[in-house]
């Protein structure tokens, strides 16, 4: 055995490092300081969320949970110097346009994701489509509105359909990418077993991949719906705004996000209160869909 004894006391000949943690050493101080800063940063980042929720509950809640909740939820938006009124048409408009957008983007997105994730994930079309879908996630929402304006509104006028299409353009990438992710996670064994039993690729998809990947697909769908409900830029000049309940799809339609935008620029206390109320309702809708995405998305494989 060696004659070195590393645990003995330090000699003057050969200095040995002190291996215990020393809090006041400059490097440790620096590390502790940065840790403190990071904690501060983390707490600061959480502050806006809680501030927003607080304002929503206080400002929006007083009107929403006050005496006249029915009036607020079903009444027509008030004009200028009017009192009272509600956000009914806006809620209905948002639901209808998000519904149209979902009807367009969900089937299309899932079909595309089937191709990208299962059928042929390495072909040129798949690679290009995947890349472009990712590019589309960062697409400014107002340009979706400009695009739909040029294609639909110029020919057919302002309508809820145009608004729905603009929202669909924004929902599509989220649905495609989440669904593709979910479906490519399905274990190869399960698919092989199905092939072994003589299934065609379509049957494998419908009977094995889709059911197994459903949680992930639903997560993507819920997140896309949540995002689309909150959008306002694409609706500004496709669906415009209306002060009445929608009676047909081909006319300007109210929406919660546009109502908030319009009313927040008004000097009247009544309108501002309703803007907060609408914000509370909108955030509740968005949060519900986000939570649903989380619950439904728990993987089972």
């Amino acid at each position: 055995m060696s004659q070195l004894d590393l645990t003995s006391q330090a000699l003057d000949i050969r200095p040995r490092p002190r291996l215990q943690y020393q809090a006041l050493e400059p490097r440790a101080l620096k590390s502790g300081f940065l840790t403190g800063l990071t904690w501060l940063a983390a707490l600061l980042a959480a502050v806006p969320l809680f501030s927003v929720i607080y304002m929503l509950l206080i400002q929006g809640g007083t009107r929403l949970f006050g005496a006249d909740i029915a009036e607020v939820l079903t009444g027509l938006p008030p004009a200028g110097f009017e009192m009272g009124g509600g956000i009914g048409p806006a809620i209905v408009g948002t639901l209808i346009m998000v519904g149209i957008a979902s009807a367009i983007s969900i089937p299309l997105g899932i079909l595309a994701a089937i191709y990208l994730g299962v059928l042929d994930s390495t072909s040129k079309i798949a690679k290009t489509a995947r890349f472009l879908a990712k590019v589309l996630t960062g697409f400014p929402s107002i340009l979706a509105g400009v695009f739909v304006y040029a294609v639909i509104v110029i020919r057919f006028g302002y309508s809820a359909t145009a608004g729905g299409v603009a929202l669909a353009v924004l929902m599509l990438p989220t649905v495609v990418l989440a669904a593709e992710e979910a479906m490519s996670q399905v274990p190869q064994r399960m698919k092989d077993a199905a092939y072994g039993m003589g299934c065609t690729r379509t049957q494998v998809i419908w009977k094995v991949v889709l059911p197994t990947g459903l949680p992930g697909i639903l997560t993507g769908v819920m997140l896309a719906i949540a995002g689309a409900s909150g959008e306002s830029a694409p609706l500004l000049f496709t669906a415009l705004f209306s002060n009445y309940y929608i009676s047909e799809l081909a006319e300007p339609t109210a929406s919660l996000s546009i109502l908030i935008y319009n009313f927040s620029g008004m000097p009247f206390q009544n309108q501002i209160e309703l803007a907060w109320t609408a914000s509370l309702v909108l955030v509740l809708i968005v949060l519900v869909f986000n939570i649903l995405a989380r619950i439904l998305g728990r993987p089972k494989v």
Partner: peptide, 10 residues
């Protein structure tokens, strides 16, 4: 998840 308009209002 919070929509842009709500941030504007806030």
């Amino acid at each position: 998840a919070i929509p842009s308009v709500v941030f504007g209002l806030w």
